[in-house]
């Protein structure tokens, strides 16, 4: 499927640069509603438009938490595509979302129509979302905006990550003329708790190579987990510090630049290196440590990660 859309994208950019029919842009939407019932966390609604859907929820760790695979058969975004994913969790329901393969943002057409993905996660009180997609690969000269917004109610928890490959390092193709605006924002009510952005365009292309920026590394990753109740830090028995120590050890052992910090109520883990699989490996290890502390459950990896 990925090869198909790859070749489709190639023929689009090479053969018919200016006169593409509107139909070539795939606007897809998916809206999921999870709710807590007597049977556990149930996927109550899944509405979709365009090639973006889920099949059914899996329950490898019992009825309390639904694992769902987001399927996007085109495999990536071409110019003008817009992908909109909305996930709502009802009170006390728990969902884990992942993807079966890498997301791709292909080389832009000459019109450079935006390749836009919008993820909105709305969490009711007492619920949790784990947003654990595989990496997003940005082809050279892609023109994209990737927005993820997490809206937390009180006592709702979020673990998520973004792994981004700038260009195709395995094929020695750098991000060159591409542009990217990537935002992860977490709100609670009207208050902004965390905003993380990566913007690469004509004005700041220097950060790709810069010593303070991406240091010439093609793969960048960010994992965020929280909120942690920092009042508990007053009580040394429940301090978050031992967890941070463990995460730092994983960061140190990951074979690339990586670091752990606590910003406000959120743990952040960063990766900067050459390989998306190393970033994934680091984040999965950290996820195993964080999950029991934040969500009170042991790590149970989605089966699709093993394939």
């Amino acid at each position: 499927m990925n090869n198909l859309s790859q070749s489709l994208s190639a023929s689009i950019s090479e053969d018919a640069p200016n006169v593409l029919p509107k139909a070539s842009a795939w606007n897809a939407e998916l809206s999921l509603q999870f709710g807590r019932t007597a049977r556990g966390s149930v996927l109550q609604r899944a509405d979709h438009r365009g090639p973006l859907y889920v099949q059914k929820a899996f329950y490898p760790e019992g009825p309390d938490l639904a694992q769902v695979y987001l399927l996007h058969p085109p495999g990536g975004l071409v110019s003008g595509d817009r992908l909109e994913i909305t996930v709502n969790t009802g009170a006390d329901s728990h969902a884990l979302l992942t993807t079966p393969g890498a997301g791709r943002v292909y080389r832009a057409r000459p019109d450079r129509a935006l390749q836009h993905q919008i993820n909105t996660l709305n969490l009711s009180p007492g619920s949790s979302i784990e947003w654990l997609p595989l990496e997003t690969i940005l082809y050279p000269d892609a023109c994209t905006r990737l927005d993820t917004r997490v809206n937390l109610a009180d006592n709702a928890h979020f673990i998520g990550w973004e792994i981004t490959s700038l260009g195709l390092p395995n094929r020695d193709l750098p991000f060159s003329d591409g542009s990217l605006s990537q935002t992860l924002q977490i709100n609670r009510g009207e208050r902004i708790l965390l905003r993380e952005r990566l913007q690469i365009d004509e004005q700041n292309r220097g950060l790709l190579q810069g010593s303070a920026g991406l240091r010439g590394k093609p793969v960048t990753g960010l994992m965020v987990a929280g909120p942690f109740d920092l009042a508990m830090d007053e009580n040394t028995e429940h301090s978050i510090e031992p967890l941070i120590q463990q995460l730092r050890q994983h960061a140190q052992d990951c074979g690339a630049l990586a670091a752990v910090s606590l910003t406000g109520e959120f743990l952040t883990i960063r990766y900067l290196g050459d390989q998306t699989d190393l970033a994934m490996q680091l984040f999965v290890r950290c996820w195993h440590e964080i999950r029991p502390e934040l969500l009170g459950r042991a790590g149970c990896e989605p089966r699709i990660w093993a394939t």
């Binding site: 700041n204 303070a212 920026g213 991406l214 960048t220 670091a259 900067l272």
Partner: peptide, 17 residues
Amino acid sequence: EDDIGNGLQGLAIASAG
């Protein structure tokens, strides 16, 4: 407004270090 903020990954890793 929506574009405010831009992380420098190298600097952030240095600061965390």
